[in-house]
Each structure stands twice: as C-alpha cells, then as structure tokens.
C-alpha cells in the first residue's frame, strides 16, 4: 500500500534519515523502533510532508508528492504525539474536522457521508457521551482519543502514528492500542507507528523496522526483528535481560 524508496532527511548538516526504504502491506502494523535520535519521527514527518526529504514515498505506485493535500488525507491519516488545544472546541467539532478532505467544492459544507463517519468514529473511541464536552476540560488520554477519532473520521487506508500513547497511563495506552488494533482488523488497512515501548511493539505489531543513526538495521515480521542480538546491536544493551529484570518483581 505505502512504500518508501531511498528516503533521506537532512536538517542542515545533520542527516536524520539515510537512504531508508520499506514497504507497508495490507493488514500490517509496522512498528518503527530504535533509540532516541534514530530518525523514526523524522521519517514519519517526511511521509506527512512536514519536513523535506530526498527519495520517494509511494501510494500504490503513485508518488505521494503528486497528491493534493486533501487526496493524501483520504489515503493516509497522521496522528501526532503533540496536539495543540488553545480554544474550547467541543469534542464533536474536533472529530468533524477529520472530514475536511471530503468537502466537495470551494463553497460547500460537509460531505454527504460526513455525519455518519463522525458518529462511527465517536462510537468506536467511546466518545459519544463526551461529544459536547470542551476540549479544554479533557485529560491527556481523552484528548489523544479525540484526535484518534478525528483520524478515524478521516477514513484513511493507512494510519501513521508518532508515539500514539506517549505520556499516557497504562489504561489509556491499552485503550489507544486496542482501538487501533480494532481499526486495523477491517480489510484494506495498514498501520505504521513509532513506539518507544518495546513491549507494546511486541504485543500489537505484526512487523518491525529497527532504526539506528538514521539507517534501517532490520525489517521483517516482529518475531524475527525483535531478537536479543538485533536489539543489543541497536540499543547497545541487553534489552531482553532488562525487560526480564523489570518484570521480575511482578
């Protein structure tokens, strides 16, 4: 569905991502993992056109750069880890913004199926009861759920997530990842996400791409990539040993 071909991202003299390629196929949840500074978020930002890059992202063979922003939004939904909320919009208003890409013309309002899509997104994320609530009154986890609902209302084929459960407590982490898993169960969908928590990556991912210093170290089914040897090479420590040590008191 989505492929990256020889992607390089540079910030001045610093090369954040170097000649990286991968493919995302239907039904896959590809976890981007690696230490801080590995280039994971830069790769995601490049796919979202947030930073310029060399190389090509393709959607079913078509160069993403040739797509207008609204067409790109209908295919790929991005969920950022930092969402800015300044004004007291209601939950429903924020979720409805996900239908922006489907507005038919210059002076048209919402699209025909917009209301139903918003309802489905609110229901799926358990926000129906909070639809009238002000965004300024929500907790961090609820806010993240609202933006996830916005992406669901967008009805993309691929979800691209930058640490979707960052700063969330365990309960919200579970909720968010379970919601994405349920979304992925529908045919014709795929997920690409950055995660720091390797346990979450193992639990929910189908595939993984290990990165280090901007380069792809290994890519494949999650069991084949998250091996003690590869993780030790990328993180410079005994990751499995550390995980066992953490869980030992439990």
């Amino acid at each position: 569905m989505l492929s990256a071909e020889h992607i390089t991202v540079r910030y001045g003299r610093l090369t954040a991502v170097e000649d990286l390629s991968f493919r995302l196929r239907e039904g896959e949840w590809l976890m981007l993992a690696g230490p801080n500074g590995a280039g994971k978020s830069s790769l995601i930002e490049a796919a979202a056109r947030g930073v310029p890059c060399e190389g090509t992202f393709r959607w079913q063979g078509e160069d993403l750069r040739s797509l207008k922003p609204a067409l790109l939004a209908r295919r790929i939904g991005f969920l950022s880890q930092k969402n800015q909320v300044t004004y007291a919009y209601t939950v429903e208003e924020v979720v409805s913004l996900g239908r922006y890409a489907y507005r038919a013309g210059l002076f048209s309002g919402r699209d025909g199926d917009g209301g139903a899509a918003v309802e489905r997104a609110l229901e799926m994320t358990g926000l129906t009861a909070l639809r009238e609530a002000s965004m300024l009154t929500l907790s961090g986890g609820e806010t993240q759920r609202v933006f996830l609902a916005q992406v669901f209302a967008q009805e993309p084929r691929v979800l691209v997530l930058d640490e979707p459960a960052n700063h969330l407590d365990l309960n919200y982490q579970k909720q968010i990842f379970s919601l994405i898993r349920r979304w992925l169960d529908q045919p014709g969908r795929a997920v690409l996400s950055v995660v720091h928590d390797l346990s979450l990556a193992r639990r929910f991912g189908t595939h993984a791409l290990l990165m280090d210093h901007g380069k792809g170290i290994a890519r494949g089914p999650i069991d084949e990539v998250m091996t003690p040897e590869l993780l030790r090479r990328v993180y410079g420590m005994d990751v499995h040993g550390w995980m066992r040590e953490l869980l030992a008191p439990w």
């Binding site: 979202a48 056109r49 947030g50 207008k68 922003p69 609204a70 067409l71 790109l72 939004a73 209908r74 939904g77 991005f78 969920l79 950022s80 969402n83 800015q84 909320v85 300044t86 004004y87 919009y89 208003e93 924020v94 913004l97 996900g98 922006y100 890409a101 507005r103 210059l106 002076f107 933006f147 916005q150 992406v151 967008q154």
Partner: peptide
C-alpha cells in the same frame, strides 16, 4: 468567512491542519 473551516483546522496547529488535508 469562506476560510472558516481552514481556520478551525489551523486552530489546532499547522501539523494537524496539514494532516487533515489543508494546503497550509
């Protein structure tokens, strides 16, 4: 007035606006 929806989108930051399909 025509750009009300875009202003709503931009109220949540340029990244969010771009992600939902606004030509920021």
């Amino acid at each position: 007035l025509r750009f009300s929806p875009e202003l709503n989108a931009l109220s949540f930051g340029e990244d969010n606006a771009r992600h939902i399909g606004v030509n920021v």
